[in-house]
Structures are given as structure tokens and as C-alpha cells.
Design a protein around this nucleic acid. Structure first.
Lengths: 349, 349
DNA sequence: GATTAGCACTCTATCCCTTCGAGTGCCAAC
DNA sequence: GTTGGCACTCGAAGGGATAGAGTGCTAATC
């Protein structure tokens, strides 16, 4: 974007003022609040130019200007400077992310909740993408005739299990044989390389009658596939109603309606994540306003960072807030939570 | 409540009309809509009387009447007649509560979601109160040095587990010994009779050095206690914004804010449940308006029913909606969902 | 060519006023 | 106990009028 320095400053100032006041910014108040060494008429010319470039817009003829999606984008890409959190803010976050939990899932929920409280927006996290982690243990425990529990320990330090139905007639011993065979042959394999065929092959050689064996193997396969399913954790949805940006009820309703379909949101995060992998920029994903293809999020920005459970196993954590947000602050809050999360996760791997 | 027949009819009509129109009901429109064989002036006298009794009230001097909390209460207790759901509605619910799930938890979430979709309100369910169910199996699986998984099978057909930390030096064999001892001594005991002391006693006699043994026993105890912790499932919170009763944003915000603290809501349901156990009425709990002690629910009614996983293990399922609701319909919807849930649960026990 | 002062114009938000209508309470009559 | 009649009340809706913040444009100035 070809902008001379003053125009950059003007855009910067407009974004800052609009974010903090929630009122369209006029040329006069811009002069009052900032140390521009020119007159308001000059700024008006600059603003007309910025509007022509599509960076700012007028709600109506005689109002001040507000940043457009493109304006926020320019601000985020080129103008803003990330500010570090104060030690006090850092401490607050560290304190809230309770490190005494026993399971990764709880840690993630914890971080998500903290992020919502810290930013005042809706926060969300995706569970780790486990498809690159590999099986370390797999046990099938007989619960009662016809019912068993498949317990899997994954390389990322995660334990998953699933109750499955098995044929009634199977003995404890037979189950242990099957379980042992699967474990022996599949240990060390990344989850995304395990298919029904792999599992069936692994189960061969156990002296269990064919149809019974096949059903157990299928259930084991289903359990493994379930283990790498993605979950999404949302938190602080109610905070939307605290934001003046969503005081119109209609907008709040649309947004909450969309968020209530967590599967859809998860799908969108995945899409974003895949798009990111191909480009080589840093680990933040930022979508502003209409850039977001989910319904009802036109007035939102969607910012996520990538956390890592291990080198190859990662997930996302971030916020959905109004596009009129303090980007520099929010980004560093997410970044700090992410770092803390990464640190705490080391305990599990 | 001493009311002559016509006054009962008037109150009934006011509730019906107000529920369906969301407008204060005047004496004239009451005449128009119902077949009262008296004049509007007579109804005005009756209404003045009902107001004097605190059953209806005026939003302001020259408006019609709306039912008060007490009025709704009288309506629910004595006036309304429960209507059965139509076969079509029943079928719709039966279809939605997917019976192919493998875990009780999923079944409950499923029913909760269905209830929210059916009623259009916020729905909620409590997990089964497992403290009366007893231990059928308990296994401690070594995951890696220092980490184990406690798997418990309960009499109600529920499987619970918890990752716990154990001393690094313990061998597989030692763990199995401890696990076996606990299982042998505690099988058949209701969860609420298991204390740290019981577990420690159960673990005696295993040839494992004292401090190590003690830590494992403590962790096993913690796992058992976690197994009978109550969970709450909320669904459809966003539907609140669809209701005209909460179009004022402030009210919606308060309500959603309260609901976001699911622990508090769970505590309240528990309180209600305990109060119910002492009185001997039927299985519905209905709280209207100010009867609800949770903040921000003054304009709501809270209705729950009790489902049963086994004779002694039960939980709650119900809705939170505006107190201006079609009670007879909503109650039969909850009732039907509850029955369907009970039926499906038999598969698990 | 960039900057500035000045000015006419535009649009919204707010306040005030009026009107309308539904509803009430009360009284006197039935 | 019931009814018709009537004065009264209050909120909702609509219609100016006004104030204020902001704009674009022009002509003068640096």
C-alpha cells in the first residue's frame, strides 16, 4: 500500500481513536487528540484520499470516518506495533492458568477460559491434532460380556479411551490376545497411517474365530479414529453482550447462533489452519470482518495462534472479538497465553 | 387459594392470552377472545380482585394485566391441564434422540440438545448422581513411569477413568497388586461409602513399601471421588436472544452471564433436587420467577424432571425459559424426553 | 503543488409536543 | 351481583424544530 507517512499516521490515529471511543472520527477531533502539525482541512484531504483507497469509510455523509476491513488489515499488517504485556498482566495470566491439572484437555480448557477473561471476548481452542502422534500402548479391557474399553496411550502423552461393543462370547483371554496383537503391530505408527486394513492385518494370527475377531478389530479401529477427532472448546460467549459493538441484539443473535454450532466453527478453524500451512508466515492467523466466511461474523475479527504439544502435534487457541479491538494488545495476550500453554504442556510429553 | 369458578377462568384466560400474545390483557380483549357470559365491567371487578390477591399485576396504570409469579404458580398448580404431545411431535423427539451412541454421557447430551430444539429454550441436564452406584471393577494401568490410568466400571454401566501420577519407581507388578487389592475389597461398595480410610484399609497387605503405597492409594481414592462428581450440560443458550421476553439486552446479558457459571447452576439444581427429596410430590420441579434464587433469572421459569439410570441412580433434565411460557406444553415435552431417555438408558445397565 | 481558512450544506440525535387508543376505576342504575 | 357510562391515565407513535459535528469545495496563501 503506497501511503506517505502522514497518511499512515492519519490512518493509525483513526483506528486508535475509533477503537477507544467507538465513535466515527472527524478531522477536528483528530487534530485535538494528536499532534498533527497541519490543519484540519489538510487532514480532510488526506481522509478523502484514504476513503478513496477504501481504507476508511463514512457511516453517513456528515459523520466522521471509521476504518474499513481493509483499513484494519493495513493497520494490522503494517502500522501497529505489538506491545509487551506488563509484568502484572503476565503474572495475572500465569496465575490463572492452573498447572495442577492432570490432563491436557483440562489445561487447554483452562487456558481458553483465561484468555476469555483476559481479553473480555469469546475465546476458543482446538484440541491437539493427534494424527501425527503415534500409538504407544493399546489395551482392550473387558468390562462385562459384550462390552469393552479400548484404552490408548499416544506419544503426545495423551490418553484416550472408548467404550465399545464386542461379541458376548469372547473370553478375557481372547480379548487380551487381540489387544496384544494390535499393540505389538501398531505401536509406533502415526494415527493417520492406521486404517481399517492395517488394524485387520495387525490382528491376524490370533487364534480367534474370524467373524468375532473382525468385529473387535473394527471396534478397535473406530476407537483409534475417534482418538484423533478434533474437539473445540469455546468460552465466554456471553461476553459478546457486554460489547457495545453488539448492542443491536440482531447482530448478537446471529453471532451466538453461529457459535452455537461448534462443529461449524471447528471446521472453519481447520480451514484457516490448512491455509496457513501453505503460506510461510508466522504462527498467527488473523481474519478481519468480511474475510471471515462464517455467517454473522462480519463485525468480528478472528485471531488464533498455534500451540504445540510436541513438535508434530499442535492445536489452535485464540479469540473472536469485535473488529473494533485493540489488536496490538489482544495479539500479545494470545501470544502470552500460548507461550504459557506450550510451557505447561511440556509436563505431559 | 379460594377462588370462585369464574375468577379461575379469568386467571386462566389471562395467562393463556398473555402467553400467546405477549401483551398485557385488558377486560375488553378478554371478552372478545373468550366466551364469558358477563360484561367487561364484571371482569374488571374480578380482575381487581385477582390483583388484590396478588395473582395479576399492571405494568402501569392504564395497561392491561399480566400474571404475577404467584399467578403463574396458581396456574401451574391448579388450573392448567397437561396436554399429550401429538404423535408427530413424539416421533420427532424419538428420532432426534439418537440411540446409537456408546456412552451414557453422549445420550444425555443428545437428549439435552433435543429438548432445547423442541422447546426453543435453554435446556440443561445433570449427569447421573453416581454416589449410590457401586464399584464393579477398578484397574490401574501403567501408562509410563510416574503415570497411570485408573479405570473404574460402576454398577450403573458407566465407565470412568482418571490419569494419575504415581511414584516413578513402582513396577507394573506392584501396581497390579495394589489395583487387585482395591478391587477385591471395594467391589460392591457404593461410592459414597468409600472414603480415604476405606481405600487405605483395602490396600493393606500388598507387599509395597509404605510411602509409595500410600500415594497410589490416595490417587485411587481421588479417582473414585472424581467419578461421582456431578457434571452439568447446558444447551441452546443462544436461543434466549430469540425470545421477545429478553429483547432488552440487559436481561439477556444477566441471564447469559449467570448461565455461563455452570458450576453455580449445577449447585442450584442440586439444591432443588435435595428439596424435592424431602417433599413427596411427583418428579417435576418447577420454579417460577423470583422463586429462583439465581441472579438474573427473575423473568424465567426453571423446570426439571428426574430421569433414572437405575433405581438408585438418577439425574435431572429440563429447561430454563421465560416465565411467560406454555407450561402445559413444555412440561409434556420435558416429560416425553425424560421417558425416552429412561428407555434408552436401559441399554447401558 | 501543498496547505489553509472559510462557508454552505448534510445528516443524525434529541427534545418537545400532540394525538391516539387501550385500559382503568368508580358510580349510579338495574 | 352485574352492567353501562364516563372521566381519567399513561405509553406509543408521529411530527417538527434545533443543535452539533462533520464534510466537500473554493479561493487565497505559503
Amino acid at each position: 500500500m503506497l501511503l506517505d507517512n502522514r497518511k499512515k499516521e492519519v490512518l493509525h490515529a483513526i483506528v486508535d481513536d475509533y477503537v477507544s471511543t467507538n465513535e466515527p472520527v472527524g478531522s477536528k477531533s483528530l487534530i485535538e487528540r494528536h499532534n498533527f502539525q497541519v490543519s484540519s482541512a489538510t487532514l480532510r484531504n488526506d481522509m478523502a484520499e484514504l476513503e478513496h483507497l477504501g481504507l476508511i469509510e463514512k457511516p453517513h455523509t456528515s459523520a466522521g470516518r471509521i476504518p474499513s476491513d481493509k483499513g484494519y488489515r493495513e493497520y494490522v499488517n503494517s502500522l501497529m506495533t505489538i506491545e509487551e504485556l506488563s509484568p502484572k498482566e503476565q503474572l495475572e495470566i500465569e496465575k490463572r492458568i492452573d498447572s495442577s491439572v492432570d490432563e491436557v484437555t483440562d489445561l487447554i480448557k483452562n487456558a481458553t477460559h483465561t484468555l476469555s477473561e483476559t481479553t473480555g471476548f469469546v475465546s476458543l481452542a482446538m484440541s491437539p491434532r493427534l494424527k501425527k502422534s503415534f500409538l504407544k500402548q493399546l489395551k482392550i479391557l473387558m468390562i462385562e460380556p459384550g462390552k469393552a474399553l479400548v484404552v490408548m496411550v499416544l506419544s503426545a502423552g495423551v490418553v484416550k479411551d472408548k467404550v465399545v461393543r464386542i461379541p458376548n462370547f469372547l473370553s478375557d483371554e481372547q480379548i487380551m490376545k487381540i489387544s496384544g496383537a494390535i499393540e505389538k503391530n501398531l505401536t509406533g505408527k502415526p494415527l493417520d497411517e492406521i486404517t481399517l486394513v492395517t488394524v485387520e492385518t495387525a490382528g491376524k494370527g490370533t487364534e480367534v474365530p474370524e467373524p468375532l475377531l473382525k468385529q473387535v478389530l473394527y471396534e478397535a479401529y473406530a476407537a483409534i479414529k475417534q482418538a484423533d477427532e478434533l474437539n473445540i472448546y469455546l468460552d465466554g460467549e456471553h461476553r459478546i453482550l457486554e460489547l457495545p459493538d453488539f448492542s443491536s441484539l440482531g447482530r448478537a443473535r446471529d453471532l451466538l447462533g453461529t457459535l452455537s454450532d461448534s462443529g461449524m466453527v471447528a471446521g472453519y478453524v481447520n480451514e484457516m489452519e490448512n491455509a496457513r500451512e501453505h503460506s510461510a508466515d508466522d504462527s498467527f492467523m488473523i481474519r478481519i470482518g468480511q474475510e471471515i466466511t462464517l455467517e454473522g461474523l462480519d463485525d468480528c475479527s478472528f485471531i488464533t495462534a498455534t500451540y504445540n504439544l510436541t513438535d508434530s502435534v499442535s492445536g489452535n487457541i485464540g479469540v473472536i472479538g469485535p473488529k473494533r479491538m485493540l489488536y496490538s494488545k489482544v495479539i500479545s495476550q494470545i501470544d502470552f497465553v500460548k507461550k504459557k500453554l506450550n510451557k505447561e504442556m511440556q509436563r505431559f510429553t
